[in-house]
Nucleic acid binder design. Structure first.
Length: 909
DNA sequence: GGCTTGACTTGATACGAGTAGG
DNA sequence: CCTACTCGTATCAAGTCAAGCC
């Protein structure tokens, strides 16, 4: 709960993900419109109050979205008719940008502000000559004001999904398309996605790999040496199957094997518990340590504090040494060998011994003693009641105030706790101002704390948490990922409107099931008088604890080991090995599905086309929607008609309306996949694919499934026939990694480190685009760009001045006064020329920076780095091109990818 | 064969620490 | 030294997928 929540933790709430609200706001303009007058009044009043005290409070800022109901009378909101709302809202929500912005620091700008910023940016960035997306969908400028139901076409195939949908992504996709060199509109202008692939992967090959190569836009040619490398690196059979049962029986493996595994996989850091204290000292001698040795150190939590310094030193010192080290690394064959041995022992067994201390709970709620007002009068609340409203206050104020569903859910859950006869009946009559003020002051105080105080608080917290931070798995100390139980709060989903605002109740030990080794001591329950729900000893799973999700009781929240643990590392490695294995099959698979494009069997044809899309466009399979729909229907039975909420889809669940054939063979894809991050691209496809899709669409409504004979189960079952263990997601990993590998090898030309890094980033960006990894444009993006422009202009003016000075100096005259009116000292012409050159370099750098910044404003590079790019590609490339690995991976990535550090420089994906 | 359940990965974002630049 | 921005990290929602059940 660390974020945003008070360090004292005496209030349960968190300010996370507030941005979702933006999305939602954007996504559902209607929500904004319907917002109740009461809501506006209520919060507006609160906020104006607070603001008058201090316009800087972050939460206030978040809340400032709220229309300037400032002036609104202190009147029971109940009285205000909804009708007034929309209008007031319309006028309120939009304008605040300019005015409120001025009063707030960027960091805490309201969601709406950022939304508007984004929108503005999007619009601005669209070249004027280029028509907007979808002429047939109407102007998107007006989208904000459009009712939700106009956003998603029902039954029609004409995409009326406005660009401003959901996400700020409005800018995202646009930028993405820009990246692809694709113009937004008309089919004639459409440049197919495949062009990108051509550039990307076929730089050296025939100009159109795609068309000429039977639909293998990616790396169609299997790399010969790949096989060798693979063999070098590992014994595929061992690595690919999860903890192969044949391998090692747990009994047989015990002490000896365990030791090997530890030593190898965890090298230095992963000493056995006993050995641990000593070892830290030992390997502080980094000069001779391998990258992975160095990398691993920080993971030992006990020494974390002191380790921080140490690792910082080691990392930076290694910056210069990596290259030397890389040679050493390659020699350390013992480590490479070790990678062949999976940590688990067979038969689905993930561990043999497991010791940990359970989980830590958020501190109990401390009442603040400040009374809220209900219909103007103070109200007494019990602790529980207060806790709920405390949560509500914070979140309502910050972001969700405009969402009726949110408010409704909050109130529903609060009512249960208030009891039937409580005087509080209506959220709109609640005035939380006093509490909010109290909270604000507290936060302020915290901010004012001196560095020492802050440090002390931090240390205290660390002390409390320390024992929960690690577990001992098969004698090896590993970090635990999320050892903190989620604090109570209000649910904030991304698009699942019906659940938003529901209370996530406080989790108690009796909700928690612990998983631990049979012989390990059962963790003491940290809350006196309570006990765990259950204690298990299941070594076929990796979780240490779980509880039922308070929002959807059927789902679980797990506590797992950290990403840097060997268990995670091993499965990560297996994932990439599987993807590498696909490399050997891909050609056959592509040939096969190409053949099936025209199969007489509809199911076969659908599987072929779906596989093609998954392969070519890195689409996800799209399984989630099934459960999601079920869930939703259950929740909203009888309400479907009004349900204009967009569902997220994956490949198998694409709707007819999501895939629109344009000019043969151009397809327009537009849908909302995971997290409702809009996927909007135009793709040139094989003609048979185009035709098949036309067939699949014929006779269906826009909301019908494009692939009616298909689901992820069938698709994956089919994929498994083609390659053992193959499933849809492997294609994503494969295509991401192979793209990186190829681009790096094609485009790295030498130059200095920063140039090489730029090549890497470029490749990384391509991958992010393929995977549709977007991010919202930072709130301050446009300001930042403007600032850069200013600076550049200043420098340019400076150069002009210098030029004048130069010509004067050549004539022996003194320089003119500077633009600031100050007299400049005399300089000789050479010095002036030098200065001009320096300044030019500066300008160039700034312009480059500006370009990159603009370029990446909607692209998130991190996700692919963490999840899709085989780290061995990066490590090997670093070794080959003498780039310090620390330039590419930050500390946590280094820890996560420790298993990849020993790879041979010749490694190719 | 379809649905449910369980376990695990993937994903964007909020926030704060660290740092470069004025 | 201060400020603005970048970067790292924690968080938790939302996916994938396979096993098991009916």
């Amino acid at each position: 709960m660390e974020h945003g929540s008070d360090s004292e933790d005496d209030k349960p709430l968190i300010f996370k993900r507030s941005n979702t609200s933006v999305k939602q706001n954007q996504a559902k303009p209607r929500c904004q419109k319907i917002i109740s007058a009461e809501a506006v009044w209520q919060v507006g009043r609160l906020i104006s109050d607070v603001r008058s005290t201090n316009g800087h409070d972050s939460n206030v800022q978040k809340g400032k979205t709220v229309p300037s109901t400032k002036g609104s009378p202190v009147v029971s909101p109940l009285a205000s008719p909804k009708a007034s709302v929309s209008s007031s809202k319309a006028s309120q929500v939009k304008p605040p940008v300019a005015s409120t912005k001025a009063s707030t620091s960027g960091a805490d700008q309201s969601r709406q502000n950022s939304q508007q910023n984004r929108t503005a940016i999007v619009k601005a960035e669209r070249p004027s000559g280029i028509p907007k997306e979808e002429p047939d969908s109407g102007s998107e400028d007006s989208d904000d004001d459009k009712p939700l139901n106009s956003r998603l076409p029902v039954g029609g195939s004409k995409g009326s999904i406005s660009e401003v949908n959901r996400r700020p992504s409005s800018s995202g996709p646009a930028a993405f398309e820009k990246d692809l060199g694709i113009k937004e509109e008309d089919s004639e202008d459409d440049i197919p996605l495949s062009h990108k692939f051509k550039q990307k992967s076929n730089a050296g090959e025939s100009s159109n790999a795609y068309d000429s190569d039977e639909g293998k836009p990616f790396a169609s040619k299997p790399r010969q040496n790949g096989t060798n490398v693979k063999d070098n690196v590992k014994n595929p059979s061992t690595a690919i199957n999860k903890r192969p049962s044949a391998e090692v029986k747990c009994s047989g493996q015990s002490p000896v094997k365990k030791a090997t595994v530890q030593l190898h996989l965890h090298q230095v850091r992963k000493l056995t518990v006993k050995a641990e204290p000593k070892k830290e000292a030992d390997d502080s001698d980094d000069d001779n340590a391998t990258i992975s040795q160095r990398v691993k150190k920080p993971a030992t939590p006990i020494s974390k504090a002191s380790d921080k310094k140490k690792s910082a030193v080691s990392v930076s010192s290694s910056l210069n040494k990596v290259n030397k080290n890389s040679k050493k690394i390659t020699k350390s064959t013992q480590f490479s060998k070790s990678l062949k041995v999976p940590p688990g022992s067979g038969e689905g067994q993930k561990w043999t011994t497991l010791v940990h201390n359970g989980v830590i709970f958020p501190p109990p709620y401390k009442p603040h003693g400040v009374k809220m007002l209900y219909k103007e009068s103070p109200v007494d609340l019990t602790l529980n009641q207060e806790e709920v409203h405390m949560i509500a206050v914070m979140q309502i104020l910050t972001e969700y105030l405009t969402k009726p569903v949110f408010r409704e859910n909050v109130m529903n859950d609060w009512k249960i706790i208030l009891g039937r006869n409580h005087i509080i009946k209506n959220l709109d009559d609640c005035d939380f101002t006093p509490i909010y003020e109290w909270f604000r002051l507290k936060k302020e105080k915290k901010k004012q704390m001196s560095a020492e105080e802050k440090k002390a608080v931090k240390e205290e917290k660390l002390k409390q948490e320390e024992k929960y931070m690690w577990a001992v798995v098969d004698g090896v100390k590993e970090n635990v990922g999320n050892f903190r139980v989620e604090p109570p709060g209000l649910f904030r989903g991304r698009e699942s409107i019906p659940k938003m605002g529901k209370l996530k109740k406080r989790i108690s030990p009796s909700d928690i099931t612990i998983n631990i080794g049979k012989d390990a001591p059962i963790p003491e329950c940290p809350i006196p008088g309570e006990s765990w729900k259950e204690v298990r000893h299941d070594n076929t799973v990796t979780w240490l604890a779980y509880w039922n999700d308070p929002i959807n009781g059927k789902e679980f929240k797990y506590v797992f080991l950290a990403a840097s643990s060997s268990l995670k590392g091993q499965s990560d490695k297996e994932k990439y090995e599987k993807a590498r294995k696909l490399k050997g099959y891909i050609e056959g698979i592509r040939t096969a599905y190409t053949k099936d494009f025209s199969s007489k069997d509809v199911t076969k044809r659908q599987i072929a086309v779906a596989t093609y899309l998954i392969d070519k466009l890195a689409l996800r399979a799209g399984n989630a929607v099934a459960t999601y729909l079920i869930d939703k229907l259950a929740l909203r039975a009888g309400n479907e008609k009004d349900d204009d909420e967009a569902d997220t889809v994956g490949c198998c669940t694409l709707k007819v309306e999501n895939v629109e054939p344009r000019n043969n063979p151009l397809l327009k894809l537009d849908f909302l996949p995971k997290d409702s991050i809009r996927y909007q691209k135009r793709v040139e496809v094989e003609i048979p694919v185009f035709k098949a899709i036309q067939q699949f669409r014929s006779g269906k409504k826009g909301s019908d499934n494009l692939f009616d004979k298909l689901d992820t189960c069938k698709l994956n079952a089919h994929l498994k026939e083609l390659m053992p263990g193959l499933s849809a997601k492997v294609f994503r990993t494969y295509n991401a990694s192979i793209t990186l590998d190829e681009m790096l090898n094609k485009e790295t030309k030498g130059g200095d480190v920063s140039q090489k890094v730029a090549v890497y980033q470029h490749a990384n960006k391509e991958v992010a685009i393929i995977c549709n990894h977007q991010r919202s444009v930072s709130k301050s993006h446009s300001t930042q760009m403007m600032r850069l422009d200013e600076k550049i202009n200043k420098l340019k003016n400076f150069i002009e001045e210098l030029k004048t000075d130069l010509s004067r100096a050549k004539k022996g005259k003194p320089p003119l006064k500077g633009s600031d009116g100050k007299t400049k000292r005399n300089m000789n012409p050479e010095a002036i020329e030098k200065k001009i050159a320096q300044t030019n370099v500066k300008i160039e750098k700034m312009e480059r920076d500006k370009e990159t910044k603009e370029d990446l404003k909607t692209v998130a590079l991190g996700t692919s780095k963490i999840n899709y790019l085989d780290p061995r590609i990066t490590v090997a490339w670093c070794k080959r091109y003498e780039v310090p690995i620390e330039k590419m991976f930050n500390k946590s990535l280094l820890a996560k990818f420790a298993w990849a550090m020993d790879v041979e420089p010749s490694f190719r994906f």
